[in-house]
Design a protein around this nucleic acid. Structure first.
Lengths: 364, 364
DNA sequence: CCGCTAGCCTACAACGTTGTAAAGCACGCG
DNA sequence: CGCGTGCTTTACAACGTTGTAGGCTAGCGG
């Protein structure tokens, strides 16, 4: 059916291996031979069978990216960045959506699909510390986010606590005293929600503001719709509010929507800041202040670490990388005089630490 | 290194082929044998080598989805739907972004990666009728959109003209007389821009409104930023405007942003309608009326057609499928009394037609 | 009691490529 | 003129799986 090296070899009058050598750029080939082979390739329309090559070389040059869902702008933008970073290294990205729940996340780590690709970049949403054993896998793995800590894998995370603290402080510094938090996950001790909530409380403390549980609105899923609902609930309860820290931008946009629906002015009545700095934030009305967690850097780093592990699984101790993050001020916190403007209000420095095989983190 | 069927066979005291039979659910196996094999698989932690299987069976159970970029919400949502539809059929999706331009699109059709997957769903942005020859490929292909017409492939498109006409008419029916169009591509005769522009003109005509070139703003890329710029340009020129039809939602959201920045009220001063009905439209301020082109149905149909071609490449004539589309009225056209509300203003019926091998379309 | 059938299992080859080891060849030097 | 050297090319096996064809066993009908 398809043209194989066999056919090319026959037409060029050389051995199969010589065709292989030409295709793979092996240097010691007589120009005349190379030319004959290339002519045969063109003439026959030969295309290498990547599957056979993969079987032989044990590499597929594909990696998997597992995220909750692409409909969430943050993950769509992350996927975009990961695909570009992978592309720059000649890798193709296969995407798995795990929003269907826990079992999908387990599948990602154990399922049969895993051995079609050279490695996995995984952003878990449900799996936590109790599932640590699942992360002890026999393929290159980079974990995103902070749900799972001691996993025997490289880690790329965010400056969650410091950035959330800075965001809260930013609201306080403009005189806001009743700062609500949207998107909390009650009872959770790991993961972005818990960490950002910690940052929020530290920010309040630093600003000398009391922590008031009545100002905290839960939201399991971080969608626009849940953000709108949570904001609505707070407003219905009649709690006094002059600032909102939403744990991601989708929630913040939902909150803006709810505030607008009730005729409240942003930032006049209420200042709002989100987290993730998705593209949307630059175009909402009003434009949304947010935390830029360094998405581009996260993607690049994750791909880089994965590539290193693919090249050499035992490439030293596992790393934990935290990109710099920045607070971006826009209209929703009164930082932008004109609508298109934005200012970098603060920067939280990231860093790299090595995690020794035994599991204790060691500063670098 | 890795455990193979060989190892499993040795432990279970059977032939390799019997292991294969167990793994593949071949029915005629003695329970005792099956059990021994399964015990060996569990004990050794055997996982099938998909690459070897693919080489032998000539199937990878992977398909490629090529879209401009995932950062555009429409394509992110489309990818989400495609991945889910593929998943339901046991297929994994590999994503390629082609926003880098024409050469990337050519690569998608001719590049070496193509033979790692069983088929391709391709949404071209640059390639047009002049590239028809490129689409005559030797692998299953489903084309999305309307840039390429007579391609020898199945086609899933949108009701572009009719829906754009209905959208324009909807603006007119609320008394708008100066309806701008945002996102035009001057000189283009194929593709969504041209078709939606045609619908716009037909809508104006049907409403008895004149076509005024001064109301048409170009925008090459359909991003929020370009929508804001285009809207800004129109407003700067001082053209009188009381309605806006943006060729997609990103443009519309950018336009809302620009209108808001200049203190214009939507829908009071200007009514706005977009196209694509992305999730964002439900949460912008004001909420955005839009055309729902049937994204879910597009994804399902595309995967379905592709699967059929993979199963049998000669499965009858090529099809051209157009899902139903609907005009969704929200605040930006004054259709929603309360902010969360929306109404289906109109429906444009789609359909299926068969394209005979010779190339002439024939109604069904 | 024989032969046939159905059920269960196996040996072998093949999918298309690349790594290994080695062979052929030309050239230059002693 | 012989031999080593380095370039060029090749044969062969192997990657791990599945399709094909056939063998063996037990059971059943005649």
């Amino acid at each position: 059916m398809a043209v194989t090296m066999q056919d090319v070899a026959a037409r060029a009058g050389v051995s199969i291996k010589t065709v292989s050598n030409v295709v793979n750029g092996y240097p010691h080939i007589r120009p005349a031979t190379r030319e004959r082979v290339e002519e045969a390739i063109d003439h026959l329309g030969y295309r290498i069978n990547e599957t056979a090559r993969s079987l032989r070389t044990r590499r597929t040059d594909m990696i998997t990216l597992a995220v909750p869902e692409l409909s969430l702008p943050y993950f769509a933008e992350l996927a975009d960045s990961v695909i570009q970073a992978a592309d720059a290294r000649g890798l193709t990205v296969l995407i798995e959506q795990t929003s269907a729940g826990r079992s999908r996340e387990v599948d990602v780590l154990t399922g049969k699909r895993r051995n079609m690709t050279d490695g996995l970049i995984f952003s878990p949403l449900e799996l936590g510390p109790e599932d640590l054993a699942l992360f002890d896998v026999d393929f290159p793995l980079v974990v995103l986010g902070e749900r799972v800590f001691g996993a025997p894998a490289d880690h790329v995370t965010m400056n969650n606590v410091a950035a959330a603290q800075a965001a809260t402080l930013h609201l306080a510094s403009s005189g806001r005293k009743r700062i609500a938090l949207i998107g909390g996950h009650e009872g959770e001790h790991v993961g972005s929600a818990a960490l950002r909530t910690t940052g929020y409380r530290q920010g309040l403390e630093e600003a000398g503001l009391p922590y008031d549980p009545a100002l905290v609105a839960e939201a399991g899923l971080w969608h626009r719709s849940t953000g709108a609902e949570a904001m609505g609930r707070l407003l219905d309860e009649g709690v006094e509010i002059d600032g909102v820290f939403a744990l991601n931008d989708a929630l913040a946009l939902g909150a803006l929507h709810a505030l607008h629906a009730r005729g409240l002015d942003v930032p006049g009545d209420v200042a709002v800041i989100g987290f993730d700095d998705i593209d949307d934030a630059r175009y909402s009305a009003p434009t949304l202040s947010s935390v830029d967690p360094g998405r581009e850097q996260i993607a690049q780093t994750a791909v880089g670490l994965l590539v290193a592990r693919i090249a050499d699984a035992d490439a030293g101790p596992f790393r934990r990388v935290v990109p710099d993050s920045r607070i971006i001020g826009r209209e929703s916190t009164g930082d932008a005089p004109t609508s298109g403007a934005e200012t970098v209000v603060a920067v939280q420095e990231g860093g790299v630490e090595r995690v020794e095989p035994q599991g204790e983190p060691a500063a670098v």
